[in-house]
Design a protein around this nucleic acid. Structure first.
Length: 325
DNA sequence: AGTATTTGACCAAT
DNA sequence: ATTGGTCAAATACT
């Protein structure tokens, strides 16, 4: 895959190429999963090596593509953002929505079925994102579902979750979960943004796994430990600190991802103070730094720079908020 | 009563 | 015009 060739290609074509690569990469990843599942250590060894090789190849190719342009185009990074390539971070600036902080309590002016104006919101782009495939959707963070969508050409809907600490701590981590249609017992989980909720005082010990994002997601790991955002610098508060949350151990029913999140024992832990994290339990380290302004209002150490609103305008200002979170 | 999920509408990006 | 991401009222759950 040569760059020279790609350079003579239009941006649109390039995008398609990248998309295809991403898909191929996903497929290879899936293959890897399958191999891991029923692998007798016989011939599968070479098969695994092969998969690893393929993944590396995708990784390299994609990084070449992205690094060569992304800088201000953003087009590519946008495609890739969701797949783990980090683009230049940008704060969402959806200040127009002054109520961001009120969270779920927002009410519409007219309590009626009329078309409501929900104001604008900025979609987050270029946030750190990485994904993994796992047989379970729970990690040790507390998530709250805020949406579900049917995805074109996908048999299963995609569910959207945000950190439950979004409003009380301004944590912007979100994740998307969707069953793989090839193997419904597995979920493709995309983490976007680092957790900034506190209790991460012990954060800095996260280990950066330098493996490519693509390779990093091991599937079916006995201990679901979401890999951290690939290629990203960690800022001091970023993550790894799990938010204790133990989701019900039971495997969810194959209807859709949300079921398993239902009983989240968060309730028992409501008053949980970071300081007493049972660090023992498996922790998942999703890191995140997400997007929109959840400004939370306040306190604690969430430095949420009101960035969103302050810098307003959606233009991307170059300021990597993620470094401060 | 407070919190979480569901779900259709709204909105941004393409 | 379409598609995917988010919002928020309604609803379910605890």
């Amino acid at each position: 895959m040569g760059i020279p060739y790609l350079e003579s290609v239009t941006a649109v074509e390039r995008k398609r190429v990248i998309r295809e690569l991403v898909e191929g990469q996903e497929s290879a990843t899936h293959l890897k999963v399958l191999l891991q599942k029923h692998s007798g250590d016989d011939g599968s060894l070479s098969a695994k090596e092969l998969v690893a090789k393929i993944l590396r190849s995708f990784d390299k190719t994609l990084s070449v593509l992205t690094s060569s342009e992304d800088v201000n185009g953003g087009e590519v990074s946008q495609i890739l953002a969701i797949y783990g390539e980090n683009g230049s971070p940008q704060a969402a600036s959806c200040n127009d929505r002054g109520f961001e902080d009120s969270g779920e309590s927002r009410k519409r002016s007219s309590p009626v079925p009329t078309k409501d104006r929900r104001g604008c919101y900025k979609r987050r782009k270029n946030a750190q994102a990485w994904n993994e495939v796992s047989s379970k959707t729970d990690d040790n963070y507390a998530w709250r579902k805020y949406g579900q969508k049917e995805i074109l050409n996908s048999k299963y809907p995609r569910s959207y979750f945000r950190c439950t600490r979004k409003y009380d701590q301004g944590c912007r981590a979100i994740k998307q979960v969707q069953r793989l249609q090839e193997s419904p017992e597995l979920y493709q989980i995309t983490y976007i943004g680092n957790h900034t909720c506190r209790d991460m005082i012990k954060a800095p010990q996260l280990v950066v796994d330098s493996t490519s994002p693509w390779e990093s997601f091991l599937v079916n790991q006995p201990e679901p430990e979401p890999s951290r955002a690939p290629y990203e610098q960690d800022h001091p508060f970023s993550s790894s600190t799990p938010m204790i949350k133990e989701e019900n151990p039971k495997q969810e029913t194959p209807s859709d991802v949300t079921d398993n999140m239902k009983t989240n024992l968060w309730s028992n832990l409501k008053d949980f103070e970071p300081t007493m994290l049972p660090s023992s339990t498996k922790m998942a380290s999703d890191n995140a730094d997400t997007v929109y302004s959840c400004t939370g209002s306040h306190s604690t150490l969430e430095m949420d720079f009101g960035v969103d609103s302050v810098f307003g305008t959606d233009s991307d200002f170059h300021f990597d908020e993620s470094q401060f979170i």
